[in-house]
Structures are given as C-alpha cells and as structure tokens.
C-alpha cells in the first residue's frame, strides 16, 4: 500500500514538474532574450541560454531610470490605493448581499450580474468619466474607471460569506446589541482573512497589469505606469512595422529593441512573483464560487 502510494506520489510530482516546466520555460525564454546582446538576438533569434550575454537592455532601462522608477512608483501607488479602495467597496457591497435581512436582495444581485454581461462600450464610458468627472490625466483615471469593483469579485465574496461565516455568530453579536457596522468589522472581518487576501490579490493583479486606462485617459507621460510604458513602446513598434508610417524620415534606431521590450516585461512581472507566495495560503481558502442569487 505505501509502496503503491509512493509510486503514485512520484508520478504526480513528475507530472507537476512537467507542468511547471511548461509554464516557466517561456518565461525563461523571455528572461534570456532580455539578457542577450541585441545584434545576436536579431541574428540568431531567441535562445534559452544567451549565446552572447549582455546587460545592455537593463543598462538602458537604468539609463532612462527616472522614467522607469517613476513608472514603478505610479504602478505601486495605483495598485495600493486601488486595491484598498476596491477591497473596501467590494466588501461593503458583498456582505449585505449575503444577508437575508437585505430587502430586494434579488434585485441587487441582478444589479451586479447585469454589469457582467452588458457594458456601454468605450466611448460612452469615456465621455462619462472625462466630461462629468474630468479625470483625464490625473491619477484617478488609473484607479477609478472599470477596475474598482467588478461583478465576479462581488459574487465570489458573497458566496464566501454565505458559506464560511456562520449565521449564529452574526446573530449572537446582534443579540449582544452590536450594530451592523460593528458586526461587520469586528465579527465578520476577522473571519474573512482568506477572502480579503484572495480578492485583494485579484484586484491588485488587475491594477498591476492594467494599461488600458492609461491608453484611454492618460496622455501625460509623467503618469505612465510600467505596463503603460511597455505597451506604448510595443504599440509604437507595431505602428512602424505596419508600414503605415508615411515619409521615411523616422529614425527607427531610436526605438527600444526587442531585448529592451523583454526587459521591461520581466521587471513588470518580477514583483508579482515575489509577492504571490505570501498570499498563496489565503488565496486557496478565499476562492468560493457560487450562483448569482446565493
């Protein structure tokens, strides 16, 4: 029995090593190409081991350090503020949805679910945020539109409350005379750590990786996040290589090379890889998927 078990574990571990290799190998390719000398990269293509090692891509990024560091600063700030606000709003919205005392509970559930299926499209949303709220070229533009709250997170959090917060506990607290807000913050919140960590990570990831809000609302490059910088470089390259550029007077030599694009991609991913393991144990406990009406 134990021998059989051990073989089974061996096979499982082997499969997972394969899966991990499949998942990581392309990332290593990315890393290695960011460490390869430019001309070599153009001549030989991508290799898992740089045939001619060079730190020039990273040196270039250090050279435009103020831009990259500023981009990092923006990304970190926006991620932190956005995640905290988004968390709080999601938390405050999802909890009442999980309570039977909430009047028109079904209506509110659908109110959320509807937003997952329909959206007004880019232009109306853009007009809303820029003409009524004037958030263009402000940090708010990176935080507020689209990312703060989404239906999936609300429904997931609500399902967590339904399944993991014993109703008796809430009832007991209320009999002791605690108001709804006290119940929420003193009883429910401490029990919701896994949920908070999970939804927090999900919201945080979206903020960290977002470049669309920059594309729509930001033209001031002082407000570019890391992902926006990367995306702008890549879209410039794509525009040039589409052959649409008129005249010939552009100097493509000034555009960051493939190696640099890869290097920016790498430095955009590394922080997440460092943070994720700390969230992991909560992550798994926090994910609860359930229906809309709950």
């Amino acid at each position: 029995m134990t021998a059989k078990h051990r073989i089974g574990q061996g096979i499982l571990n082997f499969i997972f090593v394969l899966l991990c290799v499949a998942a990581v190998a392309p990332f290593l390719l990315l890393l290695s190409s960011s460490l390869t000398e430019e001309a070599t990269l153009l001549r030989e293509g991508y290799n898992f081991f740089p045939s001619k090692f060079s730190l020039e891509s990273y040196a270039y990024l250090m050279g435009s350090a103020s831009k990259i560091t500023k981009g990092y600063g923006i990304t970190v700030f926006v991620t932190l503020v956005g995640t905290v606000c988004g968390m709080l709003m999601t938390f405050l919205f999802a909890y009442p949805l999980s309570r039977r005392e909430l009047p028109h509970r079904t209506f509110f559930s659908f109110f959320v679910f509807f937003t997952m299926l329909f959206n007004g499209g880019l232009v109306p949303t853009y007009m809303m945020w820029t003409q009524t709220f004037h958030i263009r070229n402000t940090l708010w533009a990176l935080i507020i539109p689209g990312l703060l709250m989404n239906g999936f997170n609300i429904i997931m959090m609500r399902s967590f409350f339904n399944s993991s917060i014993p109703n008796e506990l809430v009832e007991a607290a209320r009999i002791d005379g605690a108001g709804e807000y006290r119940v929420l913050f003193q009883v429910v919140l401490p029990l919701s750590k896994p949920m908070i960590a999970t939804i927090g990570l999900m919201i945080g990831l979206r903020y960290w990786n977002d470049w669309t809000n920059s594309l729509y609302y930001i033209t001031d490059e002082n407000l570019y996040s890391i992902q926006a910088i990367l995306n702008t470089i890549i879209s410039n390259v794509q525009f040039l290589s589409s052959g649409q550029a008129i005249g010939s007077a552009y100097s493509a030599a000034n555009l960051p090379s493939v190696g640099i694009r890869m290097a920016i991609a790498v430095i955009g991913i590394i922080p997440i890889l460092c943070i994720y393991p700390f969230f992991q144990k909560y992550f798994v406990k926090g994910i609860v998927v359930g229906g809309v009406k709950g």
Binding site: L30, N231, I269
Partner: peptide
C-alpha cells in the same frame, strides 16, 4: 502553485 501561475501574469503582447 506559484510556478503554474506565471503564464497568467504575462501579457498577451509579450
């Protein structure tokens, strides 16, 4: 669990 999440973090352009 950490390693298999890596692909999810890489943007499609990259």
């Amino acid at each position: 669990q950490t390693l298999i999440l890596i692909p999810y973090l890489i943007s499609m352009v990259v």
